[in-house]
């Protein structure tokens, strides 16, 4: 394979790295211009709509942050959507039927998420199952459990207090009213950007994705770290489940369908490599915003919602193609 000169390699890396930011800018500009032309009025660039975009992105961004760790380590977690449903339903039932209260409910969702992640991790490390197969199986198991414990019906009546805490807006200086869920997502993104780029846990996540065997030969307890990565993804999914429960004010066992698709799309669009070893939390957040904009744009222009999943799926395929191309351009030997 021909190696490009280093300057050209760096250029390709830079485009691959920040290309998604360019996509975001172009989409915002295009929707701002097109919205008044097509709908006769500015529907896009209104604070109400932008808050909606940010809210949609927030929940996906939180899951996708965990997914970024999993994919960077060379794995995949297809069970996050089902995990959202199970965590939400369980938290709703606990709050409705016991006196654990809203904060307790939040931690129940997180605990369910963490346990689901630990179960995935055990299947992958102890039984040596491929992550794709293990989490495909648990996707069905978790979704099934959500349906079983809720009897297939949405769970209501878990108290308004939960919504008041986790689905309100807070006034920030200079910016104005911001949904707490967006603040949650931003704080999580900053913390886990730091974890991925500045700590041993993050470095080993990258190392395991680069070469699991090399990492093991370096004396690193690979399985322990892989467990940690899947538990982290589960815990963050649990947070997302609690926030979604608050936003939609019901715990529905059918919630979270296709959330794995959005989370994987956000990560790979943001430059996280499906072949492992490379991940970018900043890219994932921008990716989540782009996905939210795609859905928002399609809504604004009255495109039937069936097209949304089609488009997001196509975007994943495109992003993976670009990643392959970049690797061919920059890899030596």
């Amino acid at each position: 394979m021909s190696a490009l000169p280093l300057t050209r390699q760096r250029a390709v890396e830079t485009v691959a790295r920040y290309g998604i930011v360019l996509v975001l800018v172009i989409m915002v500009a295009a929707l701002t211009v097109l919205s008044p032309i097509i709908r006769g009025e500015q529907f896009f660039l209104t604070s109400r709509n932008l808050i909606q975009v940010a809210l949609q992105a927030a929940i996906n961004a939180i899951i996708a942050t965990g997914m970024t760790f999993v994919i960077t380590s060379g794995g995949i977690d297809l069970s996050v959507g089902a995990n959202v449903a199970l965590g939400g339903v369980t938290a709703a039932l606990f709050m409705r039927d016991t006196g654990i209260g809203p904060i307790g409910g939040f931690f129940v969702a997180m605990a369910v998420g963490g346990l689901c992640g630990a179960f995935n991790g055990l299947l992958i490390t102890r039984l040596d199952l491929p992550p794709f197969i293990a989490t495909l199986g648990t996707m069905g198991m978790f979704r099934g459990m959500a349906l079983i414990i809720s009897d297939g019906r949405p769970v209501y009546g878990f108290g308004r207090e939960f919504l008041q805490i986790f689905a309100r807006q807070i006034d920030l200086p200079l910016i104005g009213a911001v949904p707490t869920q967006v603040v949650f997502a931003l704080v999580i993104a900053v913390v886990f950007w730091w974890v991925l780029n500045r700590t041993k846990f993050g470095k080993y996540t990258i190392a395991i994705g680069g070469s699991e065997e090399t990492t093991r030969l370096a004396g690193i307890p690979v399985n322990r770290y892989k467990m940690g990565i899947y538990i982290l993804c589960g815990l963050l999914t649990g947070v997302a489940a609690a926030l979604l429960l608050a936003r939609l004010s019901s715990g529905d066992p059918t919630f979270g369908t296709f959330y794995e698709l959005d989370a994987i799309a956000a990560a790979v669009m943001g430059g996280t490599s499906l072949s492992g070893g490379e991940g970018s939390i900043g890219g994932t957040i921008v990716g989540a915003l782009v996905i939210s904009l795609v859905r928002n744009g399609l809504n604004l222009f009255n495109v039937p919602s069936y097209w949304q999943d089609f488009v997001i799926g196509a975007v994943i395929v495109l992003a993976v193609m670009l990643d392959r191309w970049r690797k061919r351009q920059t890899r030596r030997v």
Binding site: K200, F201, A218, G277
Partner: peptide, 30 residues
């Protein structure tokens, strides 16, 4: 070597030095 890491990260793979004292070591701050 891990291709995705730089030279120093590879040399210190599994033997990282941490900063910020005991807390930094517990959290594994590189």
């Amino acid at each position: 070597l891990i291709e995705e890491l730089d030279v120093a990260d590879n040399v210190y793979l599994g033997r990282e030095t941490t900063k910020y004292g005991v807390i930094g070591r517990m959290m594994g701050v590189l």
